[in-house]
Amino acid sequence: MPRPEIEDIIKGIEEKGKEGAGYNASFYYPERGGIESVIRGIYGPVKDKVILNTAVKKVDLKNRIVYFSSGEIKYDRLISTMPLKKFLMLTGNSGYIKAAKGLKARTVYSLNVGYKTASPTDINWVYVPEPEYPFYRIGFPHTFSTYNAPAGLSSVFAEVSVKGAVPKNIDSEIIKGLIKMKVLRNKSDIKTSLPLLLPDAYVIFDSYRDSTVPEIEKKLNAQGVITAGRWGKWEYSSMEDAVMEGMQAAKKAAGGA
């Protein structure tokens, strides 16, 4: 989080602070295709070398073999971007499995809603700390690009931090909250919705994580495994960080510094 100066806090209280704050006060976003177009751009040149819709079943660190639901691949160096906790469990190593059980993270439930409104907002996203709302953040993808929603419609996502099972009535509570915030006028505004569950969305940075993850990373590196990305390194990071870490991991796997 950006650390504000006293002067900035006073400006905020007096509603004089107009400058953007934080690392994402301004950002680039694809005009068409949504953020997925970034991934498609990376995928295009190498798609003949990518295997999709195949689950990893086991990682044999000793013999350096990854077993999939549809076969196996032997490797010299392996880059893992899957959640570190899941990767450790797949190794079958008792020490790694024990370490994995202590790693904690929060799941996020996101309800994505397409709706009709007479007065579309130009706000990108809003954090909602008030306890009467079930979500901690809402965002409006149609403000990132006009191509993110059909003409005359808007889009909003509402994110809820989940510990354990997702509450059964969470969708209705989210809709009530959006109506209360006057994002929606009523339920009839909704044209479509899509719920998404994001496991391990936010890593919990406790003392166990801070002391355990660096040691695990060293051991895995010695066994030919390079962890990268927000999930692989079990950390909080941005998309830009993930891209940079991917490039660094590829260079390291190829024998670079």
Rank of each mutant, 00 (worst) to 15 (best):
S155Y: 14
R185L: 05
V162A: 10
N53E: 11
S238E: 11
N93R: 00
K57N: 13
K252Y: 06
I174Y: 12
V59A: 13
R40I: 06
S207E: 15
S37Y: 05
I73L: 12
F68Y: 14
N63T: 10
Y43R: 00
E15N: 13
T54F: 03
K85P: 02
N186V: 02
A242C: 12
R64V: 04
S188C: 01
S154P: 03
G164S: 01
T212L: 07
I79D: 12
S172P: 04
S145A: 10
V183F: 01
Y202E: 00
M244L: 14
A242I: 10
V50C: 08
E173P: 05
M89C: 00
I179V: 14
F144D: 11
E36F: 09
P131L: 08
K187A: 11
I9R: 12
K176S: 03
K16Q: 04
K104P: 07
D171A: 13
K176Y: 08
N148P: 02
M244V: 15
G22W: 11
M239E: 09
I204W: 04
K180T: 10
K218N: 05
G33T: 02
E132H: 02
P199E: 11
I204T: 12
N93K: 06
S70I: 07
D210P: 02
T107A: 01
A250S: 14
G177M: 03
V126P: 05
Y202A: 15
N53K: 08
K16G: 15
Y236A: 01
T121M: 07
A21Q: 14
Y75N: 01
A149G: 08
R64W: 07
P30Y: 01
F135K: 03
K116I: 07
I39N: 10
N124K: 00
K11P: 00
R3E: 06
N24G: 00
K251W: 08
K233R: 15
T146M: 09
N186W: 14
A21T: 06
E7W: 00
P199A: 09
D210M: 13
R40W: 14
I6N: 00
S69M: 03
I13K: 04
